[in-house]
Amino acid sequence: MSIRDAGFLSRSRILAVVTSRPFLTFAIVALVWIVASFVSRGFGAYGHLRYLVELAAVIGIVAAGQTFVVIAGGIDLSVAAIVTVAAVGLPLFAIDADPTGLTPILAVLAMTTAIGLVNGLGVALLRVHPMIMTLAMATFLQGLLIIIAGGSAVTAANPLVSWVGNARPFGVPAGILVWVVISFVVLVVMHATPFGARLFAMGAGPLAAKLSGVPIASTTMAVYGISGFMSGLAGIIVLGMNGQGYVGIGDPYLLASIAAVVLGGTSILGGLGTYAGSIPGAILLVTITALITVVNASPGWRSILFGTLILALLLLSGREAARR
């Protein structure tokens, strides 16, 4: 207690922050940016870095949902399919009576949240393993997408969606602003509400949490619902940035969201971690991809480099404790 009372900037407090996983991941991002801007001309330009963060915003928002699910002890393998459903399905909800374009966005968000809730229903009540439930959901949605899109790309004639994808209020892309707001809300919910506390308890030990009075079923459903909502939001931003939605637009975000979560120091086994780590994790992923593009290698080497770098970064932040 005395240490905590010694003041906000006490030595042990500073040490704890500096050696924490989120801070380390931030430090790695800063280091890579500094080195890369010396090696490659134009990498460190404000416009380029802003572009990187804009790309990271989409991964970061998907990873926000994924972080909730992973901390609660599950995993969501349907995020890519949900992103695609949102991006492709949005024009279906277009209503002429609403010139702002807000109705279709709300409808899509409600739909993707419902998809997430169904995931949670399967995991919590049917007791299907999260990996199976969400994989099966992804397969199911793949069928649905073929009905919706039939293989062709759809264009969004929605002013609000284009604004989110392209506008730059105060010189900052709207996507980044959305990410900042989401990050703030997520961090508060995760670390300063009873719901967040239940989340960590459930991930650390579901049985102990249940016996301590945590409503497992409703918390699980909420977690997958949040993941569905986030994926839907990311899908809308991607649609705005691309101008077009097509089947497969969400595919990169499955691996990216899981990698961002794990690189940020959240344990894939659940019960341990923070979204503060997933934020730099998402930026780090985009930076790695950008660097590999700079190297100008063949697709094969690019893929090998990407995998090796993630594996190397995992060694820094993803190790589990020995159990024996």
Binding site: I75, I258, A259, V262, L269, R302, I304, G307, I310
Partner: peptide, 22 residues
């Protein structure tokens, strides 16, 4: 190295797929 299998094989799939492309 005590890394989670799901993430190692995820990263590994990129390396192996790259090798197949080479």
């Amino acid at each position: 190295l005590r890394l989670p299998a799901i993430v190692v094989t995820l990263a590994g799939s990129f390396i192996i797929a790259g090798a197949a492309l080479l």
